[in-house]
């Protein structure tokens, strides 16, 4: 059991990194990776939201939406899986709202520096993507909690590494058209190449 969970975690962090292999959460990755400390703050917020929403969405899917899931209510023939998107996104939006309020109350400085990007976690593809991937991979409750948490860690790692590189990048002489988004994409490509070296590791 433990070994399986560790294997899921390693897979989600390194081999199938949510950002570098599935391209999820690029928008905030590109926008917030200019300073290391904001990147860490956003990364932690993403980890928290992921760890809470992924198991929550698992419960919703298992007991309300999936084919035959309403059997406990005496409705075994009902299939509500077409409501999946709208339910998942509402859970996520509500969760993000809660995180926002908690942060505003307890860490106002972090709340200030994240600014507009905090509400935007709701539309961060990484969050919805993890919930959807969890469905296609057929994880159970514990496995999807671990999967959500470690996807968040993978995302945090990628964005912090990127922020560190971009801080250094400010002192280098880059061709004009390549500045900003262009060079960031190229560096992300090289990072993805680095992470690909983990492919083939099995636990």
């Amino acid at each position: 059991m433990i070994v399986e969970l560790i294997s899921i975690a390693t897979k989600a962090i390194f081999i199938e990194n949510i950002l570098l292999a599935s391209f999820l959460g690029m928008c905030s990755f590109l926008a917030v990776s200019k300073k290391v400390d904001t990147a860490v703050g956003l990364g932690l917020a993403v980890i928290f939201v992921l760890t809470v929403t992924t198991p929550m969405n698992w419960l919703i899917n298992e007991y309300l939406l999936a084919d035959g899931a309403l059997a406990w209510a005496g409705l075994p023939k009902v299939n509500l899986s077409f409501l999946q998107f709208i339910c998942y996104i509402s859970t996520i939006a509500a969760m993000v709202q809660i995180v926002e309020m908690v942060m505003d109350k307890f860490t106002p400085s972090l709340y200030q520096s994240l600014g507009i990007f905090l509400p935007l976690i709701a539309v961060n593809c990484a969050i919805l993507g993890t919930s959807l991937f969890m469905g296609t991979k057929g994880y159970n409750f514990t496995e999807s909690t671990v999967y959500g948490f470690s996807s968040g860690i993978g995302w945090l790692m990628a964005i912090v590494a990127m922020a560190a590189i971009r801080t250094k990048l400010r002192y280098s002489n880059i061709p004009k058209g390549l500045r900003g988004l262009g060079i960031t994409m190229l560096i992300t490509g090289l990072m993805a190449l680095g992470f690909m070296s983990f492919i083939g590791i099995t636990l």
Binding site: L20, A21, S22, F23, P175, K176, G177, L178, L181, G182, I183, T184, M185, L186, T188, G189, L190, A192, L193, M196
Partner: peptide, 17 residues
């Protein structure tokens, strides 16, 4: 593979800019 996509998009952005 994923890195190819990043690099290609980076180059397209470079050309466009």
């Amino acid at each position: 593979l994923p890195p190819g996509a990043f690099i290609l998009l980076g180059l397209i952005i470079w050309i466009q800019k």
